[in-house]
Design a protein around this nucleic acid. Structure first.
Lengths: 174, 174
DNA sequence: TTAAACATGAAAGTCGATTTCAAAAGGGTG
DNA sequence: CACCCTTTTGAAATCGACTTTCATGTTTAA
C-alpha cells in the first residue's frame, strides 16, 4: 500500500489537471474510475470497470460508470477500442485489406493493400498466438462527417444513432 | 438488367459450389443473401442486409438472415469485421499500438509498436478522410484457446459466451 | 418419386447493455 | 461559508440485437 501512494498521488494530480482542462468537476467517483482505468490492464468493459471500482466504493452505481466513461471519452481521456462495436458487420472480402472506420457515422471502407504484412508480423507477437488474419484499422472522420462537424472533434457517437434516416447519417458505404 | 445476368450467373455458380463444399442446401433465400453480400459495398449489418434482400424477396424474415449469416460465417464464406463487436471496450493507451484479438475468447492484448505508421499512411487513403488514429488488428487464437481447440478451426463465437466463469473463458487480460 | 433432412417465416422471447428519473449529495464560485 | 448547479444513486424502464419456437414448405439423396 505504502508503495503505491506515490504513483497514486501522481495519478490523482494528472487526473485533476485533466478535469480542469476539460471543465469536469473533480469527484471522488470519477477519480476512482480514472485510477481503475489506468491500472487495469487490457481493455475493460463498463461492467468490468464497475466490478472493480465497487471494491473500493461499494455505493458506486453502474449508471455512474457509464456517465463517467462518456465524459472521459468525450474529453479524449480514454478511447473506444473500436467505434463499430455495436453489432455484427459482415466482410465478404477474404483477402488482406484494411479498414477505414468513421468514428462518427461508423461507415467502414476497405483499402486493399498488403504492404503492411511483412512489417506487422515480424517479432513482437507473443508466443502461442495463432494468427488468422490482420487488418489495419484506421479510425477518423470520413469526408462527409469531417465536413459536417467542421474542425471540432466529434462527440462520442451513441449506439443506434445512425439507424434511422435522421441525424448525421448520410447513406454511407454499407 | 441484361448486363448483369452474366456475373449473376457466375455468382450463382460459385454460390452453388460453396454450398456443396460446405454441405449446405442450396435455397433461394441463401442465394439472394449471398448475392446481396457480394454486391453490397462496405460491411453491412444484418439489418442492412435484411433491408436490401427484402426488396427482392419481401417475405424474407430477419431470422433467416441471421441463420444464413451464421451458416456462411461458420463455413468461412464471409467473415466478421471484428470479433469484439459486443460492447464498449475502453482503451486508456493513447499511444499508437496494436491489438491482438482472440476470435474465441475475445480477449484483447496490446502490442506497442509504431513501425507500421509510415507504411500505412502513405497514399491509398481516399481524399477527405481525416485520420485520428490507427491500429493493426491481429485476429486469431490466443495461446490458451489455441491449446483448447487444438488444430480445429474455432466455430463462430456467440455473443455473451464468455461472460460467466463457465465455458471456454479463462480470465483473459482484462 | 418419395421420404428424411433441412430450411423458412412470423411472432414471441431472451438477455445483456445502456438510459432514465427523482431524490439526495457534492463541488465550485463569489 | 452560502448557494446554485452539477453529479451520484439505485431501481426500473428501455433498447437493440439477436434467438428460439414450431408449423409449414423445400431440397436432397436414394
Amino acid at each position: 500500500m505504502r508503495m503505491h501512494s506515490a504513483s497514486r498521488e501522481a495519478l490523482e494530480a494528472s487526473f485533476r489537471e485533466l478535469c480542469h482542462r476539460n471543465q469536469l468537476a473533480v469527484t471522488h467517483q470519477r477519480s476512482v474510475i480514472y485510477r481503475a482505468l489506468m491500472e487495469m490492464p487490457g481493455h475493460p468493459s463498463p461492467e468490468e470497470i464497475f466490478a472493480r471500482v465497487r471494491r473500493e466504493v461499494p455505493s458506486m452505481s453502474l449508471a455512474t460508470v457509464y456517465k463517467t466513461l462518456h465524459s472521459f471519452l468525450h474529453a479524449g481521456i480514454v478511447q473506444e477500442v473500436s467505434p463499430h462495436h455495436g453489432s455484427l458487420r459482415i466482410d465478404h472480402n477474404l483477402n488482406t485489406h484494411h479498414h477505414l472506420v468513421c468514428t462518427n457515422c461508423r461507415s467502414i471502407t476497405d483499402i486493399d493493400d498488403d504492404a503492411v504484412r511483412p512489417i506487422a508480423l515480424c517479432g513482437r507477437l507473443p508466443r502461442g498466438f495463432r494468427v488468422e488474419r490482420y487488418a489495419l484499422e484506421i479510425h477518423g472522420l470520413c469526408e462527409r462527417c469531417a465536413a459536417q462537424t467542421g474542425g471540432a472533434a466529434a462527440s462520442a457517437p451513441r449506439r443506434g444513432r445512425h439507424s434511422s434516416g435522421a441525424g448525421s447519417r448520410h447513406a454511407p458505404t454499407h
